[in-house]
C-alpha cells in the first residue's frame, strides 16, 4: 500500500539547512497497521508530512498503491486515497467553521453527492450524535474534536490513514476511547494505518509492526510480539522499551 525508500527530508537551505530524516525506508502492506516510534525531534512526524506534501524538501521514492508520489504535486486521486489525522485537535479544526461546514466542505471537495445524508452518517461513524452537527470547535471537548478530525479524514473514504500522534494531546481516558475507535474503524473499513507516536503502549495497542527512529534514522524494525517480550536488539529501542514500563498502564487502560 505504502512504500517509502531512501527518504531524506530537510528544512531550510544553506546555513540553516537541517536534515530531519535520513535514508528512511519501510513498507506497509494493505490493511496493515504500522507504527513509527521515537522521541520528539526524531523525524517521525516529518516523514508523514513529506508523504502528504506538507514538508516540501525531500528526496527518495514514495509509492502509494504502486503509484509514485511526486515531490511537489499531489493529484485529486492522492488526496482521496491518503488522509491524515493531526496531533492537536485544538489546532486542526478551523475555529470559525461548524462541524457541519467542515464535513460538508470536505465531502464536496471529494465530489461526493447526498451531502445532507452523509454528514450525520460520518458523525455516527465516529461516535458523535446528530446534535454535534452544528457545533463549533470551541463547544467541543478535545476527544470530540479529534473525533470530528477523524470524521473529516474519513469523509473522502481513503484507504491509507496517516495518524500523527492522534492521542497525545488528550486525557488518558479519552486516549483509550480514540484508540478503540481507530481500531474499530480499521476493522470496519479495511483501512491501512501509519501511526506516529512516542508512546510504545499506544503503538503496541494499535499496530502490528513498528519502526524505531532516532535522530532522523530508522534504527530498528520490530513486530508487536518482539515488542511485548522486550526483544529489541538496538540499544536505543531497549532504552525506549525500558522507559515505557510506566506507559504499560496506559496500554492496559486501553485494552
Amino acid at each position: 500500500m505504502l512504500e517509502v525508500d531512501g527518504m531524506n527530508v530537510w528544512f531550510g537551505a544553506g546555513a540553516t539547512h537541517v536534515d530531519a530524516v535520513q535514508g528512511a525506508s519501510f513498507f506497509v502492506g494493505r490493511g496493515e497497521s504500522f507504527g513509527l516510534v521515537g522521541e520528539s525531534g526524531s523525524g517521525k512526524s516529518t516523514i508523514l508530512r513529506a508523504i502528504t506534501g506538507l514538508a516540501p524538501g525531500w528526496s527518495g521514492r514514495v509509492e502509494v498503491d504502486g503509484k509514485p508520489v511526486y515531490r511537489d504535486r499531489r493529484d485529486r486521486a492522492f488526496h482521496k486515497r491518503v488522509q491524515m489525522v493531526f496531533q492537536d485537535p485544538y489546532a486542526s479544526l478551523h475555529p470559525r467553521h461548524s462541524v457541519d461546514r467542515v464535513l460538508s466542505e470536505t465531502l464536496r471537495l471529494h465530489g461526493m453527492d447526498a451531502i445532507d445524508r452523509r454528514v450525520p452518517q460520518l458523525l455516527e461513524d465516529v461516535g458523535l450524535g446528530p446534535k454535534f452537527r452544528f457545533r463549533y470547535p470551541h463547544q467541543l471537548s478535545g476527544g470530540q474534536r479529534q473525533r470530528v478530525a477523524i470524521a473529516r479524514a474519513l469523509a473522502g473514504e481513503p484507504e491509507l490513514l496517516l495518524l500523527d500522534e492522534p492521542t497525545s494531546a488528550l486525557d488518558v481516558s479519552v486516549q483509550a476511547e480514540i484508540l478503540n475507535l481507530l481500531a474499530d474503524l480499521r476493522g470496519e473499513r479495511g483501512l491501512t494505518y501509519v501511526m506516529v507516536s512516542h508512546d510504545l503502549a499506544v503503538v503496541g495497542h494499535l499496530c502490528q509492526r513498528l519502526a524505531v527512529m532516532q535522530s532522523g534514522r530508522i534504527v530498528e524494525m520490530l513486530d508487536v510480539e518482539q515488542l511485548r517480550r522486550g526483544r529489541a536488539e538496538h540499544p536505543y529501542s531497549r532504552a525506549l522499551i525500558a522507559a515505557s514500563v510506566s506507559g504499560g498502564r496506559t496500554a492496559r487502560a486501553a485494552e
Binding site: 499531489r74 496531533q87 486542526s92 478551523h94
Partner: peptide, 22 residues
C-alpha cells in the same frame, strides 16, 4: 501554517478556496 489549513490542503483545496473560505 496552522494545522487546519494543512488539513484542508490535504483535502485537495486550491489556494483561492483556502484564501476566501478559510
Amino acid at each position: 501554517n496552522s494545522d487546519f489549513i494543512s488539513a484542508i490542503r490535504l483535502q485537495g483545496a486550491g489556494p483561492v478556496r483556502i484564501i476566501t473560505q478559510h
